[in-house]
Simulated assay, not measured.
Amino acid sequence: MIRNALSAAGEPPALPAGYAGIRSGIVELLGVARLSAARSVNALMTASYWEIGRRLVEAEQKGKRRAGYGEQLIARLSADLTAQFGRGFSPDNLENMRRFFLAYSRSAISETLSRKSRNELPAGKSETVSRKLGLSELALVFTLPWSAYVRLLSVKDDHARQFYETEALRGGWSVRQLDRQIDSQFYERTALSKNKAAMLVKGAVPKPEDAVTPGDAIKDPYVLEFLDLKDEYSESDLENALIQRLEGFLLELGSGFTFVGRQRRLRIDQTWYRVDLLFFHRRLRCLVIIDLKLGALTHADVGQMHLYCNYAKEHWTFADENPPVGLILCADKGHALARYALEGLPTKVMAANYRMVLPDAELLQKELENTRRLIESRGKLLPKKRKR
C-alpha cells in the first residue's frame, strides 16, 4: 500500500535488486534473436534462389534445341511469379538466380555440406549431399546475404570471387564493405603486396558506417521483395515529415496530380536507387518523379534525376503516356530550390506545355521553406545526414 501511495504521488517505484543486469541480459537476448531472424530470412531466400536457378538451368538444357527457349522461359516465368508473389522476380533477378546456380555448382555445395555435417547437420543427414538438397541444408551453405552474392556475381574472375567471398565470411563484412573492397580492387592489391598478411588484417577492419543492425538487414531491398513487404522507409525523421507534407500539398493543389507511391525502389545494374514520391499527372498524362535532397543541389543530383526519368520511361510508362518528368526539391537549411528536369523531352513544344501545366517552381520552393521552418521550430525533428 505504501508503494502504491508513493506511485500515485508521482514518485517512481523502487527498482528490484539487480534490475540493470536483468535488463542488459534481455536487451542482449533480443538483439541476438533479431539478428538471427534476419540472417535466417536471408539464408532461406538465398537457398530458394539457388534452387530456382537450378530448375531454370535444367529446363534450359532440356529445351536447348529450341532457339531462345531460355529467354522465353524467363520472360513468362517472370510475369507469372510477379502476378502471384509481387516484386522480386523480374527477368534480371531470375537471370541472377540462373547465374548464381552456375557459379555455385553442386559439387562445391556438397563438399561444403560434407564439412559441416560433422558438427552442424543432424545425425544421419550427411548422406543428403548425394540426393536432392533441402532448403534448410542449402541455407547452411549460403551464409552471406543475397545482396552480397549478387555483388559477387559481378566479379568475373573465379579466383577473385572466391577470395572476396572467403574474406567476407572471415571478416564478417557487410555488403557495403564488400562493395567497397571490390571497387578498390582489394584482391589485386593484396596479390601484388609484399606483406599480404598485413593487407588482409587491414582489409578486415570495418568502418563505422559498415555496421548492420537487424533493421538494416530486413530493410534490404532484396529481402523486402522476397517477403513482398512495402518499401516505404525514409532515412531521417525530417525527410519523412517533409515528404508527407509535400505529398499532401501537391494533392491539394487540384492541378491533376494523382498519387502513385513513395520511396519507390528501382535497380539499375547492381545498384539500388529510390525516388521519394511518384505521381501521375492526369492533364499531361505522364509520371512525375519527385526527389528530395536535404542539401544543396549538385550536378550529380541532376544527372541522377535524368537516370530516373530514363528508367521510368522504359519500365514504368505505358504506351499511350507521355515521357516522365522529374522534379528535384532541395531543402538546404536557409535555402530551398525546386527544379524541373525537362531536357529529356522529345520537343521544345512539349517542354513548354509541361512548364505551363506543372506548378510554378517558386510556389514549391516557398512551400518547402515554410514546411521546413515549421518542422524545425517545433524542436521535435532534427536533420540527419542522408545516405544514398
Rank of each mutant, 00 (worst) to 15 (best):
M199L: 09
H335Q: 03
L121K: 02
R283P: 01
R189L: 03
E343V: 02
I290A: 14
S234W: 01
A341P: 02
R151G: 02
D301C: 09
L133D: 01
E167C: 00
D231R: 14
A123Y: 00
R115H: 11
L329N: 07
G31H: 07
L135A: 08
E51N: 09
H306L: 15
D301L: 05
A361R: 07
P16R: 03
R264F: 04
E239Q: 09
F279K: 02
A241Y: 05
R388W: 11
L94D: 03
S154G: 07
W146Y: 15
S377D: 14
Q304M: 10
G303H: 00
K366T: 15
G68K: 04
S184W: 00
P383R: 03
N310I: 00
D269S: 11
K116N: 10
T82M: 03
A312S: 14
I26H: 14
G215L: 04
L342A: 01
D291S: 10
A338Q: 01
T258Q: 15
F249V: 01
Y187G: 00
D92L: 10
T46L: 11
K207L: 15
F89T: 09
G203W: 03
A351R: 09
F101S: 04
V260N: 12
P91Y: 01
R151E: 10
P12D: 08
L192N: 09
N119P: 02
T190H: 06
E111V: 05
N322V: 01
G261S: 12
T271G: 07
M97P: 03
F226Y: 14
S255D: 14
N310A: 15
R180K: 04
R245A: 11
A43C: 13
L294T: 12
G18M: 13
L30G: 02
V32D: 05
W272S: 14
A20M: 07
V41E: 10
I328V: 14
A14P: 06
D183S: 08
L292G: 04
S48Q: 11
L140K: 13
V141Q: 13
E376F: 02
F101Y: 15
E343M: 05
L242W: 02
R87A: 12
L368G: 08
R262C: 06
W146G: 09
S110M: 07
C330Q: 06
E343K: 10
L102C: 15
Q61P: 07
T271Y: 10
E111C: 04
L29F: 07
Y308L: 09
L224C: 08
L44A: 11
S24M: 10
A191Q: 05
L229N: 03
M45W: 06
G334Q: 12
K293Y: 08
W50F: 03
E11C: 08
V275R: 07
H299V: 06
Y222K: 00
G379M: 06
M350G: 00
E137C: 12
N93C: 08
I52G: 00
R373L: 11
F279G: 03
N310K: 10
E252S: 15
R151F: 06
L144H: 05
L251K: 09
A160T: 00
